[in-house]
C-alpha cells in the first residue's frame, strides 16, 4: 500500500476515536433532521442550511484543525523518525484531517436528505451545490488551519489567529465591503464588488448558493450583474477555480514550511 494511504489509515482511526468528529456529525445531522421535522419542505430546509453551512463549517474546521495539528505533534515526530518523505507525510496528515471533516459534513447534512428526498427535481442541483461548497469550505479551512499551526509553535496564538481569520472572513470582510460600497455609492461598483467577492472563500460559496436559489432578484441591479456573471459557465468556472486556489495556495505554503521545519 502507498505510504500516504497508510498514514491516512492510522490517522483516521486516531481522529475518529477522538469523538469530536462524531459530535460534529451528530450535530449537523440533528439540525438538518430537526428542520425537516419542523418545516416539512425541503426547499425551506435547503435555504436554512445555507447559513449554517457558511458560518459553522469554517469555524469548526479551522478550530478543530488547529487543535488537532498541535496535539498530533508527537504523531508527526514519531513518523518523521521513520523512513517517510516529509512531502508524503504532509499530504497524509492533511488528508487524514480534511477527509473525516468532509465525510462528517456530507453524512450529517446528506443523510436526512436521503431519508426525506427533495420536493422537486430542480432542487437536486441546489442540494448538490450545497454539499459541494460545504466540502470545498472544509478543505479551504483545513488548509488554513494546517498553515496557521505550522507558522506558530504557540498553541494559544495559533488558535487566536484561526478565530481571527474566521471572524474576518465571515463577518468583518462583508461589513467592510458594505461600508465601502456605502461611501462610494455614487460610483458604479458592480465590477469591483465582483472582484472583492472572489477574494473571500465564504463569500464565494455564499454567492454560488444564493444564485442557485433564484433569490438574486431580491438584490436589485447588483443581483442581476452577479447572476449574469456567476450564473454563466465562465463565472461558475472562475469561482470554482478561485475556491480551488483557496485550497491550494495555503496548502502549498504549509507544505514548504513543513518540509523545512525543525521538530
Amino acid at each position: 500500500m502507498n505510504t500516504m494511504l497508510k498514514i491516512i489509515k492510522y490517522e483516521l482511526r486516531d481522529v475518529i476515536r477522538s469523538k469530536w468528529i462524531l459530535i460534529y456529525f451528530a450535530f449537523l445531522f440533528l439540525i438538518t433532521e430537526g428542520m425537516f421535522q419542523f418545516s416539512g419542505s425541503s426547499s425551506k430546509v435547503l435555504l436554512s442550511m445555507i447559513n449554517i453551512v457558511l458560518i459553522l463549517i469554517p469555524i469548526i474546521t479551522i478550530s478543530y484543525g488547529i487543535i488537532y495539528m498541535y496535539s498530533s505533534r508527537e504523531f508527526t515526530e514519531m513518523l518523521l523518525a521513520q523512513p517517510i518523505k516529509r512531502k508524503t507525510l504532509y499530504a497524509g496528515l492533511y488528508s487524514g484531517l480534511a477527509l473525516p471533516l468532509s465525510i462528517a459534513y456530507l453524512g450529517g447534512v446528506g443523510l436526512p436528505f436521503i431519508f426525506h428526498g427533495v420536493d422537486e427535481s430542480g432542487q437536486f442541483s441546489v442540494l448538490l451545490i450545497l454539499l459541494l461548497s460545504g466540502v470545498a469550505l472544509s478543505f479551504v479551512f483545513t488548509s488554513l488551519a494546517v498553515l496557521i499551526s505550522l507558522s506558530s509553535d504557540d498553541k494559544v496564538k495559533g488558535l487566536g489567529i484561526g478565530i481571527f481569520v474566521w471572524l474576518f472572513m465571515a463577518v468583518v470582510y462583508d461589513g467592510a465591503l458594505l461600508f465601502g460600497s456605502y461611501l462610494l455609492s455614487e460610483y458604479p461598483l458592480e465590477k469591483p464588488m465582483l472582484g472583492m467577492t472572489m477574494l473571500n472563500p465564504i463569500d464565494l460559496a455564499r454567492v454560488l448558493l444564493m444564485l442557485k436559489f433564484d433569490i438574486s432578484a431580491l438584490m436589485g441591479y447588483t443581483g442581476a450583474v452577479f447572476k449574469k456573471f456567476f450564473g454563466g459557465p465562465f463565472g461558475m468556472l472562475l469561482s470554482s477555480g478561485m475556491l480551488l486556489l483557496w485550497i491550494l495556495i495555503p496548502y502549498l505554503i504549509g507544505k514548504s514550511i513543513f518540509v523545512k521545519k525543525d521538530f
Binding site: 492510522y10 482511526r13 486516531d14 481522529v15 477522538s18 508527537e74 504523531f75 515526530e77 514519531m78
Partner: peptide
C-alpha cells in the same frame, strides 16, 4: 526519543 509521545487514540 527521550519523552515517549504517541497518538493518544491508537
Amino acid at each position: 526519543p527521550q519523552i515517549a509521545r504517541f497518538p493518544e487514540n491508537l
